[in-house]
C-alpha cells in the first residue's frame, strides 16, 4: 500500500516538471500551429546553462532560473524573427523539418561544447529528503514542483492580464482579426516562440536538479511534451499542468509493472516509452482534443 502512495507522490513530483516542459511546447503549437521539434534541444540548453553557471560560478540552480529564461527567450525570439517568419505560412511539414534541422544543429553544437559525457548538478540539498509516513519526498523535487506551479501560475496570469498576453490570445483565436486590430503578428510570433524557448530553458534548469545531463537528453522530454499536450489539450496553461500531472502519475505506475508471460519476462521500466505511447494512442483516438480540450480545433 505504501508503494502506491510513493508512486503517486513520485508521479506528481515528476509531473510538475513535465508540465513546465510541455507548457512552452503547447503555447507554440497552439498559437502558431508549429510543432517545435527543437523544444527538447532548448530544454537541454537550459539544463546546460544551469550546469555551466553552477560549476563555473557556483550559482544556485534556482537562482539561474531567470537567467535560463532570458537567454533562451532571446535565442527563440531571434530564430523566429530572423528565420522562421519566412516560412510562417508554409505547410505544416516545412516548419516541422526546419525545427528538426534546428534541433540537430543545437544538439551537435552542444556535443562539441560540452562533449558527450554525462553531467550532473549536485547541490548541497541534492540528496536531502524528508518522510511523511511511509512516503519519501526529496526536498529538491518538492522545490521543483513548487517552482513549476509558480511558473505555470505566472504564465496564466500574464496571458490573461497583460497587454501582450491578450494580443497573443487574440492572435491564436483569429489571426486576421488580430491583424486588423493592430496586432503585429510577426512580433507576436517572435515573442511566442521566444516564450516557448524560455519556458523550455526554465524546464531544463528544473530538470538539471533531478536528472543527469547529456546533449541528447531533450529527445525524451520532447516526446513527453507531445503526450502531455495531447492529454491536456493544446495551447492552454491549465491543460499543460493537468496533462503533466496525469502523465507523471501514469508513468510512475506503469514503470512498476512486472510480470511474466510464458518465458517472456515483461518489466514496466523497460517498456516505459511503449506504455506511455499506448496510453497516448488511446487518448488520441478516444478524445482527440485531449482531456481538457475544447470541442473546436
Amino acid at each position: 500500500m505504501h508503494l502506491l502512495a510513493q508512486d503517486l507522490v513520485n508521479g506528481i513530483l515528476a509531473g510538475g516538471i513535465l508540465a513546465v516542459v510541455a507548457l512552452g511546447f503547447s503555447l507554440v503549437w497552439g498559437i502558431m500551429n508549429i510543432i517545435n521539434l527543437a523544444h527538447g534541444a532548448f530544454v537541454m540548453l537550459g539544463a546546460y546553462t544551469t550546469y555551466q553557471l553552477f560549476t563555473s560560478f557556483h550559482v544556485d540552480p534556482f537562482v539561474s532560473l531567470p537567467i535560463s529564461f532570458v537567454l533562451l527567450f532571446v535565442l527563440g525570439y531571434l530564430i523566429q524573427r530572423l528565420l522562421m517568419n519566412w516560412i510562417a505560412r508554409a505547410p505544416l511539414l516545412t516548419t516541422f523539418l526546419f525545427t528538426f534541422g534546428l534541433s540537430l544543429l543545437v544538439v551537435n553544437i552542444a556535443l562539441i561544447v560540452w562533449s558527450g559525457d554525462t553531467r550532473g548538478v549536485t547541490t548541497a540539498y541534492s540528496g536531502a529528503n524528508f518522510t511523511l509516513g511511509d512516503v519519501t519526498v526529496p526536498w529538491a523535487k518538492l522545490y521543483t514542483l513548487l517552482a513549476a506551479l509558480a511558473i505555470t501560475g505566472t504564465m496564466q496570469l500574464w496571458l490573461v492580464r497583460s497587454k501582450t498576453g491578450r494580443a497573443i490570445r487574440a492572435t491564436s483565436m483569429d489571426i486576421g482579426a488580430a491583424q486588423l486590430s493592430g496586432v503585429r503578428v510577426t512580433e507576436i510570433y517572435a515573442i511566442v516562440f521566444g516564450l516557448g524557448a524560455g519556458l523550455a530553458g526554465v524546464a531544463g534548469t528544473l530538470i538539471s536538479l533531478s536528472y543527469s545531463l547529456h546533449p541528447t537528453m531533450g529527445d525524451l522530454f520532447l516526446i513527453k511534451a507531445f503526450v502531455v499536450c495531447v492529454l491536456g489539450g493544446l495551447g492552454s496553461v491549465q491543460g499543460a499542468l493537468i496533462g503533466g500531472l496525469v502523465y507523471g502519475i501514469v508513468e510512475a505506475f506503469a514503470t512498476q509493472l512486472d510480470f511474466t508471460i510464458g518465458t517472456q519476462h515483461i518489466s514496466g521500466s523497460g517498456l516505459q516509452d511503449a506504455i506511455a505511447l499506448i496510453v497516448l494512442l488511446i487518448v488520441l483516438i478516444v478524445r482527440p482534443r485531449g482531456i481538457m480540450g475544447k470541442a473546436t480545433a
Partner: peptide, 12 residues
C-alpha cells in the same frame, strides 16, 4: 551539425 544546418537552409 552540418546536416542540421543543411536542412535549415533547404527549408528556407
Amino acid at each position: 551539425l552540418f546536416f542540421g544546418a543543411m536542412i535549415v537552409l533547404i527549408v528556407l
